[in-house]
């Protein structure tokens, strides 16, 4: 599919002109709907596959690129990847009907942090890394939540793979102020990604965030209360539940790689993707990507030791 677009764009004789035109119109309507005024008029840069992006592509184009989880099974749900200039809502799965525990929140937060790492990796090409320019990201939440979960810790973020010196932490008194700060940050064009953690976002603030994200192609990951009403005006909404960790490479009694079961509950660009069942993915700290959790590796530790051959998902070649 990506090839087809590319050929249409490069002006090569298209295989199927009609389909290409329809696809082009579709993406145009999409960009109109998202109120992204500065977007390229026809095929958005997000439609070009990551590997095929020409080296001469402007930095702006790179910034607008959608980014992927790294796991083909999930990425198939979003052919264009995570849209950069949009609002993505992430909700943990509530353990009870009325409320959510810290662990439920942490599922959503953990997924959001790893998505941010994917975004920064997608953004930071090798050449940028060499020049030592690392993008900034911003974390924003009301003080009530930071009192409950503590403050982001540099040691932990470094362990996950984020550069803590480039993290701005914003703590506001009220949730409305946090929304305000997130919107302001999205408009600044200074940040690779903005992570907001809030109880919920009403229709109007959510629309404002969505517009602000579209203006500057800065993605906004909004982690909301697991049991609250979902926000409107989001490009995607994910339901994330933390699962028992994968096996540790050396020690069967130790927690291994983090695993999440993720479900795409809403997908504006491709509604048919939203109905799919949840997928169990595993985050690898080495390759910094999600992958389908290996069922073989899930067998009890004793079985693996007898077999001796099961390779943990984290080190499996792709």
């Amino acid at each position: 599919m990506g090839e087809k677009h590319l050929s249409a764009e490069l002006g090569k004789p298209p295989g199927n002109v009609r389909e290409a035109v329809i696809e082009g119109l579709r993406s145009r309507i999409l960009s109109l709907e998202r109120h992204a005024p500065r977007r390229g008029a026809w095929a958005s840069a997000a439609q070009i596959p990551e590997s095929a992006a020409p080296s001469a592509a402007s930095q702006r184009g790179r910034q607008e690129l959608g980014w992927k989880l790294g796991c083909p099974a999930v990425d198939a749900l979003l052919p264009a990847g995570f849209e950069a200039g949009a609002l993505h809502e992430i909700k943990g799965a509530p353990s009870t009907k009325e409320g959510a525990s810290a662990a439920d929140w942490m599922s959503g937060i953990g997924f959001a942090v790893r998505l941010a790492i994917r975004r920064i990796d997608a953004l930071a090409g090798q050449e940028r890394k060499a020049r030592g320019e690392r993008p900034w990201l911003l974390w924003c939440w009301p003080r009530s939540l930071s009192a409950e979960f503590g403050v982001p810790s540099a040691a932990g973020l470094l362990g996950l793979g984020l550069d803590p010196s480039r993290l701005l932490i914003v703590e506001t008194g009220r949730a409305s102020e946090a929304l305000n700060a997130i919107e302001e940050s999205l408009r600044a064009q200074s940040l690779a990604v903005v992570i907001g953690v809030l109880d919920e976002a009403d229709l109007t603030p959510a629309r404002r965030l969505s517009l602000a994200a579209g203006e500057t192609a800065t993605p906004c990951l909004l982690v909301t209360h697991p049991a609250s009403e979902p926000a409107a005006a989001t490009a995607t909404r994910w339901r994330v539940k933390r699962q028992p960790t994968g096996p540790h490479v050396f020690d069967p009694r130790a927690p291994g790689a983090s695993r999440f079961s993720i479900a795409l509950e809403r997908c504006k660009a491709r509604p048919e993707s939203a109905a799919q069942p949840a997928v169990l993915v595993e985050w690898s700290d080495e390759t910094r990507r999600f992958d389908l959790a290996s069922v073989v590796a899930d067998l009890p530790a004793e079985t693996r030791r007898v077999g001796g051959g099961a390779i943990p998902a984290a080190v499996r070649p792709h």
């Binding site: 930095q59 702006r60 790179r62 910034q63 940028r128 020049r131 320019e133 993008p135 900034w136 911003l138 701005l168 914003v170 506001t172 008194g173 102020e177 305000n180 700060a181 302001e184 940050s185 600044a188 064009q189 200074s190 940040l191 690779a192």
Partner: peptide, 20 residues
């Protein structure tokens, strides 16, 4: 820096500090 799509965050920080 040259060619970077991002602006330095100092202006953003000023605005946020101003407000909060």
């Amino acid at each position: 820096g040259e060619g970077s799509p991002f602006r330095h965050p100092s202006e953003l920080i000023d605005r946020l500090v101003n407000r909060f």
